[in-house]
């Protein structure tokens, strides 16, 4: 499965006549890990919904691999902040869902789901219901479910936003790790500048008028304080806070 390229061209996005974001131009290279930051309500989630095909642009175009996005597709998986697992399905049956949609035979479905759950460190939790799992475990199941669909692009909407610092750090490592052998284009929305610096190969600061700033961010073990200051300045925040939202 080759990673997908994503592109917004002069896109105006919004709900019911109210534009959240106008004239947005953004290109995501195949296999790139793009981190998107920006103030609350600047259209970060809206952008992901447009890429996912859940929200058609009111003007301009949103494209995947050069073709206009007409609707949702298993090529483009969306990972939500929380509570997107179907609560009546066990962890394993949640992960099996995209496989069932693709008509994978039942026994292979089960083996595949178990493999993905093991991959995110939840080999023993397959039979538990979402309400019997902690927030971090639920997000790992969601990640497994998204990856089981073999997406060519992963659209992640503050997936670790509700987790405590320790769990979040473990999840970030896990995500990079999983991506190493299941390559996909990633658009990762976060309000946490440090998370963007840690994960993104490029950081985009989004505002109501589109991309306000682009910052290349070659990943390294230690985060560069100058670059951190640059992102914070672009967000218009005093350079002390953890969060810019």
């Amino acid at each position: 499965m080759t990673p997908l390229s994503l592109r917004a061209e002069g896109a105006t996005l919004g709900y019911g006549g109210r534009a959240v974001c106008t004239g947005l131009d953004l290109a995501v290279r195949p296999g790139e890990f793009l981190a998107v930051v920006g103030a609350s309500g600047c259209g970060k989630s809206t952008l992901l919904r447009a890429f996912a095909g859940l929200l058609p642009p009111t003007a301009g175009a949103v494209m995947a691999d050069g073709a206009p996005v007409a609707g949702p597709s298993p090529d483009r998986a969306l990972v939500f902040q929380d509570d997107a697992l179907l609560p009546w399905r066990s962890a394993r049956r949640n992960v099996e869902l995209p496989l069932a949609i693709r008509n994978v035979p039942r026994d292979r479905r089960r083996a595949d789901a178990d493999a993905w759950l093991a991959r995110v460190g939840l080999a023993d939790a397959g039979r538990r219901l979402p309400r019997q799992l902690s927030g971090g475990m639920r997000q790992r199941v969601q990640l497994a479910r998204a990856l089981a669909a073999r997406p060519r692009a992963l659209l992640m909407d503050e997936p670790f936003g509700a987790l405590d610092a320790q769990t979040r750090a473990a999840m970030q490592r896990l995500l990079l790790d999983v991506l190493a052998d299941a390559p996909a284009t990633v658009v990762f929305v976060t309000h946490d500048v440090d998370e963007a610096l840690l994960l993104g190969e490029r950081i985009v600061v989004l505002g109501p008028a589109g991309v306000e700033q682009e910052i290349p961010n070659p990943r390294s073990a230690t985060s560069d304080p100058a670059r951190r200051a640059q992102v914070l300045a672009a967000l218009g925040a005093p350079a002390t806070g953890e969060e810019a939202a």
Binding site: A52, L54, S73, L78, L86, L97, P98
Partner: peptide
């Protein structure tokens, strides 16, 4: 829930 299932195809 519906969004999740639709984006899974």
């Amino acid at each position: 829930w519906e969004d999740a299932v639709r984006t899974l195809g």
